Amino acid sequence: MPSMPAFELVNPDGDPSALLLCDHAANTVPAEVNGGDLGLPAEDMARHIAYDVGARGLTLRLAARLGFPAVLSTFSRLVIDPNRGEDDPTLIMKLNDGSVIPANRGVGPEETQARLDAWHRPYHDAIRAQIDRAEAQGVRPALISMHSFTKQFRGRPPRPWHVGVLWDEDGRLPLPLMEILREEPDLVIGDNEPYTGALAGDCMWTHGTCRGLPNALIEVRNDLIADAQGEAIWAERLAPILTRALDRMRAGA
């Protein structure tokens, strides 16, 4: 048995019309993985390369305000990235934003399978279970995945966006969400920025696209939610925006 669960489940019996996800909620390294130490200094484990700064707190606050269930990871994305398909070459990163991850340099197929079995697959199984619960009640849930991004990669220009909405070919939720976000005069909104949402094998593709569920991945710049005050401000700001976007999506269905 792994030393810790692979996921955190909040509001499991909440409103099934939407499901909140947080793929990169934690920077924890389980004891089974190199004794709980990837060989990185503490300052690197506190950076965006290890987890999405502020995303867990923001997700928990949104779940509390909106009453939706939420599934959050409990392990660092550097252990194994749950927002990547099992065959993705970046599933276990060996280098990220200028930092080499020593404990990942020699990871082979056996260790990869062990990490998939202990962390990656249980997280996705928990998401499937919540979707199955909703569908058993006759509800096709919308999936909302909460992430954060760094303001600037090393040696690259600053990123101008405050919030990005990532999506694939299904615009049911992303399009009204971006329309409403753009009504906020002080925000710069990215459409598939700072990353693209069209990534086969990622979490939204696996649970949203492949199941025909409306979905959107929301990226908030991490300096805006780096502390509890920022998380609270943005939960208060995003909660009514998400409610309006979901209502508009359903009205257009």
Rank of each mutant, 00 (worst) to 15 (best):
A134W: 13
F75C: 04
F75E: 04
R77H: 03
T112L: 00
P160M: 08
P141G: 06
R105H: 12
E169F: 15
I127G: 06
L177I: 12
I131W: 02
A142G: 15
S76L: 01
G67A: 02
A70W: 01
T90V: 02
Q137P: 01
V139L: 03
L177S: 07
G155D: 06
R61E: 11
F149T: 08
T74Y: 02
R154W: 04
T74A: 07
E135R: 15
P174F: 06
L166A: 10
D117E: 14
T112N: 00
V79H: 01
L143H: 11
D88F: 07
E179T: 15
S76K: 02
R133E: 12
L143F: 11
R156G: 09
I80V: 13
P109F: 00
A103D: 10
L78F: 02
N104F: 04
A129K: 12
T150Y: 05
H124E: 11
R77L: 05
L173A: 09
T150G: 10
L72H: 01
M93S: 14
A142Q: 12
N96D: 09
L72S: 02
V71Y: 00
R154N: 13
R154C: 10
P82D: 01
N83I: 07
E86Y: 01
N96K: 11
L78C: 06
P160C: 03
F149H: 09
A129S: 11
P158K: 05
P102C: 03
G171Y: 01
F68V: 05
R121S: 10
E179R: 15
I101Y: 04
G98K: 05
D88E: 14
A63Q: 07
Q152E: 13
G155Q: 07
L72W: 00
L175N: 13
Q137N: 05
G138A: 08
E179S: 09
R156V: 02
I131M: 08
P89L: 03
A118W: 14
Q113P: 06
